[in-house]
C-alpha cells in the first residue's frame, strides 16, 4: 500500500497565495489536499499550462505542508510567464509527485546544501528533513546578484550556517558558489546535496571527488513528458540497473581495454533522477 499511496496522480490545485520576492521570481502557493504528505524532498511536479497552449513545465516542489505545496519559478519564457501571471483563486493542475528525490539518510549528519539560482527551490524540503533528524546544516547559496538570493533566512531559521555568493559581488563571496568548496579540507562534510544549473553541478561533482565527500545532485532539465515515457531528458550514467543499453564513453580508444568506469548508459533525468550520485554520472 505504501507504493500505491505515494504514486503520482493528476492533482487539481488552486492558487492560495502568491509572492514575488524579486521581480521575475514568483512563489506560487497551491491548495491541494493530498500531495504534501506524499512528496519526498527533491521531487518535482509537471505543471499543466492553464491555456493548453504550452507544453507542461517541470518545477521542483519548494514547500510541502498540510494541504499546501508551493512552486518557485523564474520567468524565462512564455510558459513561465503564463504561470507567473496566475492570481489567487486560479486553478492549476499538476502531475505530481515525480522523480526519485534525495536519499537523505545516506548523507550523514553534517550536510552542506549547495544551491545555484532557483536551485534553492529543491533544497528547502531536504533542509527541513535533515534538520528534523538533527543533522548539522550549511547552506552555500549562489546567485547572479544580491537581489536574486531568495529565502536564505528560511534556511538560517532551521539552524543552517548560511554562506552566500554572487556573480557580481553585491553580496557574500564575489564569484561562483562552487569556489567556496575549494578552500575546504577533505571530508569537511559528511555529504553534499546540490541543485542548480549543469555547469555548477559538474563543478560540485568535481569538488566532491577531490574532497572525498559523497554528493547527490538534483539536475535541472527541460522535460517533454516528465514521466519517463519519451527518453528526451537523458544524462550519461554509470552502467547500472536502468535496463537500457550500455556503451563506452571512450569507444574509439583501442588500448588499454575499456575500464568499468568507461561503461555508461543514458538514464532519464525525470525517471531515474532528477537526483543522482555525483560519482555515478559520466558527464
Amino acid at each position: 500500500m505504501y507504493t500505491l499511496e505515494r504514486s503520482p496522480a493528476v492533482h487539481r490545485t488552486v492558487v492560495s497565495d502568491r509572492r514575488e520576492p524579486v521581480p521575475g521570481i514568483v512563489i506560487l502557493g497551491l491548495h491541494v489536499p493530498h500531495l504534501a504528505s506524499i512528496t519526498l524532498p527533491g521531487q518535482f511536479a509537471m505543471v499543466v499550462p492553464p491555456s493548453g497552449e504550452q507544453a507542461a513545465t517541470a518545477l521542483g516542489i519548494y514547500e510541502a505542508e498540510g494541504e499546501r505545496v508551493s512552486l518557485m519559478l523564474v520567468v524565462v519564457g512564455p510558459r513561465t510567464r503564463e504561470l507567473a501571471a496566475l492570481q489567487i483563486g486560479a486553478p492549476l493542475d499538476l502531475l505530481a509527485p515525480l522523480g526519485n528525490g534525495f536519499e537523505l539518510d545516506a548523507l550523514g549528519d553534517n550536510v552542506a546544501l549547495i544551491a545555484g539560482g532557483v536551485g534553492i527551490a529543491s533544497l528547502l524540503l531536504p533542509a527541513q528533513a535533515l534538520a528534523a533528524r538533527g543533522a548539522r546544516l550549511t547552506l552555500l547559496y549562489g546567485a547572479r546578484t544580491a537581489a536574486a538570493l531568495v529565502d536564505a533566512d528560511r534556511f538560517a531559521a532551521l539552524g543552517a550556517k548560511v554562506v552566500l555568493a554572487t556573480d557580481d559581488g553585491t553580496r557574500g563571496h564575489a564569484g561562483f558558489v562552487t569556489e567556496l568548496l575549494r578552500a575546504l579540507p577533505k571530508h569537511a562534510f559528511s555529504g553534499l546535496a546540490a541543485c542548480g544549473p549543469s555547469p555548477m553541478l559538474r563543478a560540485v561533482g568535481r569538488a566532491a571527488a577531490y574532497l572525498d565527500i559523497p554528493a547527490q545532485l538534483a539536475l535541472e532539465e527541460t522535460f517533454a513528458c516528465g514521466v519517463g515515457a519519451c527518453w528526451g531528458c537523458v544524462v550519461p550514467h554509470a552502467a547500472s540497473s536502468v535496463g537500457t543499453p550500455v556503451g563506452l564513453i571512450r569507444a574509439k580508444r583501442a588500448e588499454p581495454p575499456a575500464r568499468e568506469s568507461d561503461r555508461f548508459c543514458y538514464a532519464r533525468i525525470c525517471k531515474e533522477g532528477p537526483v543522482f550520485w555525483a560519482h555515478e554520472l559520466r558527464w
Partner: peptide, 23 residues
C-alpha cells in the same frame, strides 16, 4: 544506446527531438 544529449529542443509551437531509437 540512443543519441547524445540534448535530445529535445522547444521551438515555436513545436518540439524538435532526436532520441535515436534508444531501446
Amino acid at each position: 544506446l540512443g543519441n547524445a544529449a540534448p535530445r529535445l529542443v522547444s521551438t515555436p509551437s513545436g518540439l524538435l527531438n532526436a532520441i535515436g531509437l534508444q531501446n
